[in-house]
């Protein structure tokens, strides 16, 4: 009998205790974040949309080489010393390479962060922006440019002209040296094929 009454009391008491617990939770602050209206802070190393800072990029292709899914395409051309259009790079020095083509396909990107780690000039970065969904893959194909296509062609032509001129000067110097019989100190190696290797 006493155990029966004890049982009944325990049943009632525990139910009331449970209700007290739920009533405490009733007045606690809700954990819901009303997403499109409220946003929460992502961790500082969150890897979301890839963004490139063209004023820092040197077209070194480190990112393109590091990328495991080949979503980055880079082409660059050296700045011709005779180019009247010179630009100061973000690190304060004159720009040495024009980025003629920089394309990344974020539909392919796997957000591994390797390009960010490989970049020597902190140009490519994963940002906190994750709201860039699109209805077609084409709108996830980002093309960065600081030069118009005509300007790019112009830069390529200028560099080719400069190289030609340099080669001619070198040939003339070599000829001169040969005729004068003086050994010519080996000049600084002529710039190699400046076009950055394409992926």
């Amino acid at each position: 009998m006493s155990s029966y009454l004890k049982n009944v009391w325990a049943g009632f008491y525990t139910a009331v205790k449970g209700m007290m617990i739920t009533s405490r939770h009733m007045f606690k602050k809700s954990v819901t974040i009303q997403y499109p209206d409220e946003k929460f802070d992502l961790p500082a190393n969150a890897r979301n949309k890839l963004v490139l800072d063209m004023s820092r990029c040197n077209a070194c292709t480190a990112c393109a080489i590091a990328c495991p899914v080949n979503c980055i395409t880079v082409e660059g051309v050296r700045v011709s010393p005779e180019d009247p259009h010179q630009e100061v790079h973000a690190d304060g020095k004159p720009r040495k390479v024009w980025v003629t083509r920089y394309e990344m396909d974020l539909a392919k990107c796997c957000f591994c962060g390797l390009c960010q780690a490989a970049c020597p000039s902190d140009a490519i970065k994963h940002t906190q922006d994750f709201e860039y969904s699109a209805y077609n893959k084409e709108s996830l194909y980002f093309k960065y440019q600081i030069l118009t296509p005509e300007q790019s062609a112009e830069k390529v032509r200028l560099l080719a002209e400069f190289k030609e001129k340099e080669a001619a000067a070198k040939a003339a110097a070599a000829e001169k040296a040969a005729t004068e019989g003086k050994p010519v100190a080996p000049k600084k190696a002529a710039p190699k094929a400046d076009e950055a290797s394409e992926q």
Binding site: T22, M26, F27, S30, Q34
Partner: peptide, 13 residues
């Protein structure tokens, strides 16, 4: 609403 508050949600908003 009560179910949401008990579970520390907001419920329909």
């Amino acid at each position: 609403k009560v179910s949401a508050w008990i579970q520390e949600r907001l419920g329909p908003m």
